[in-house]
Write a protein that binds this DNA or RNA. Structure first.
Lengths: 282, 282
DNA sequence: AAGTGGTCTAGACCACTAG
DNA sequence: TAGTGGTCTAGACCACTTT
């Protein structure tokens, strides 16, 4: 009849213990954790148990593991903020692609300052596949959003780059007849929405946009260079003609660590220095 | 000089192989995977290797593991959609809490239908802690957003429930003097924003809101009953008086599987049945 | 009781990074 | 080359669920 709560597994206790050291400042951002053998000795457990604890902290984004080097406490993340003015901006002018300020690789690791100015290629969008919609669940949802039969649709898959680093993965669905020739073959494309608008002469407006969060599936994880299950910010929605005819459904998965979408509800004002805002949305 | 790409580790190859079976329909949603010993025999590897592969698929949300029972292919997720009308809704009327339609526990698992009607308690918000802001990074950010010194602020931590299930975790920061007595002690609170507005007589408007994605840290994972690192949708922002004075900073982490925020940019129209919309936002 | 997944040990070998 | 983390094996015991 003992209602005693089962003790947590050892690896979880260790994870919490190490997290407490981090929170308490005993292990400041950028500092190195003891090596796995050292932790084994300290806690008197098998290496695999230590590894489970460390993996837990890595999933929690508390630490960063660098193979062959060591394990380090992560500094607080800095995100790219993208502002959307919900009161006025209704025109879908293209992609977020060109937005980002200093495109240098993100600062990480030690507390040491590492300015890295002037990475030349600002970014862009690389088409990696174009194919007719199949009967997969995601294609079916796109067809539903566009109110068109699956058979008429094509899907364009792209990777959005900042500098040379993948920042997000996009899937676009549109009528197959609308797919511009420039996009019909994998390669650089700069900005899919703009190419589409220019090639077809269609003016695109936002119909709706939605935000959600998912873990990276195996395919997206590959493309983005992150572990499977990493949090991705999903931004999806339909763009339409000024008449309201749905033309394009887009679903973009963005490395969660590297983006924040901001909606300002009040007219431009002195806002706290809080929002290091930027850029346009697409 | 061999530039041959290193072969992927066995567990990853197995994960991809199993994922392909799922994608191909050989393992339909709801079906059970072979047990771990069976998979060991089939692929001729150690059980731990199989477990690594299976863990990978679980992180990718492709499968669901039920201890003592088996491992099952997950059906596509269904999310609660919350609409925000960016053109008009500017008043911060309270929490998303009361929003959700049928509060039954989410359907999961087998393809079999499992209606579960009539969970009585519709949900609410449970205060779990109230404390003065410390010098932690997250408290400091709140102070920055509110433009007030840390010492004047208090933090209120709550869990947002749907039925009996935790749906999100909220942190609110406000002037310590403003914290209503009703919130000053842990317990049921129904709706923090409403309580705050009623207790102080302050009318709250949105200043800004932002969306991002993070993995659950150990604490949030505990509160939400999800694994560490699970994708959470973060909705944060400042609410202010009609004069624009920042009053409240809120940062809510929502189980990523269970929420989607929708912004409609066009006036109400016949929209595709796509958006099974709902509710208000807070 | 039987079968499932969860935790843990001991030991091995490998790949990557740095000095 | 030495030290780090990454992968894999073999075997054990446990907790949970179902029958």
């Amino acid at each position: 009849m003992s209602n005693r709560r089962r003790a947590a597994p050892v690896y979880l206790q260790l994870a919490r213990q190490i997290q407490e050291r981090i929170d308490a400042g005993e292990l400041p951002a950028g500092s190195r954790l003891p090596s796995e053998p050292e932790l084994c000795a300290e806690f008197g457990v098998n290496r695999l148990t230590i590894r489970q604890a460390v993996a837990e902290l890595e999933r929690a984004a508390s630490i960063e593991i660098r193979r062959g080097v060591g394990t380090f406490v992560r500094p607080p993340v800095t995100r790219v903020s993208i502002t959307v003015d919900p009161l006025s901006q209704r025109l879908d002018v293209g992609s977020v692609t060109m937005a980002l300020p200093h495109t240098g690789a993100p600062t990480r690791g030690e507390g040491g300052g590492d300015d890295r100015g002037g990475v030349p290629g600002e970014g862009g969008e690389r088409v990696i596949a174009v194919a007719p919609a199949s009967d997969s669940a995601v294609d079916a949802e796109a067809a539903r959003h566009l109110g068109r039969p699956l058979a008429e649709l094509s899907r364009v898959e792209t990777v959005v780059l900042i500098g040379a680093e993948p920042w997000g993965v996009s899937s676009y669905w549109m009528e197959s007849a609308l797919v511009p020739r420039e996009l019909s073959v994998p390669g650089e494309a700069d900005n899919v929405v703009r190419v589409l608008a220019e090639a077809t002469g269609i003016v695109l407006e936002y119909d709706w946009r939605a935000f959600s969060a998912v873990g990276a599936d195996i395919g997206d994880a590959d493309l983005l260079g992150v572990p499977t299950g990493s949090p991705l910010l999903v931004r999806e929605g339909v763009s339409c003609t000024p008449d309201g005819e749905a033309v394009l459904y887009v679903r973009r998965r963005i490395n969660g660590e590297r983006a924040r979408f901001v909606l300002n509800f009040r007219p431009e004002k002195e806002r706290s220095d809080a929002m290091p805002s930027t850029a346009e949305d697409g």
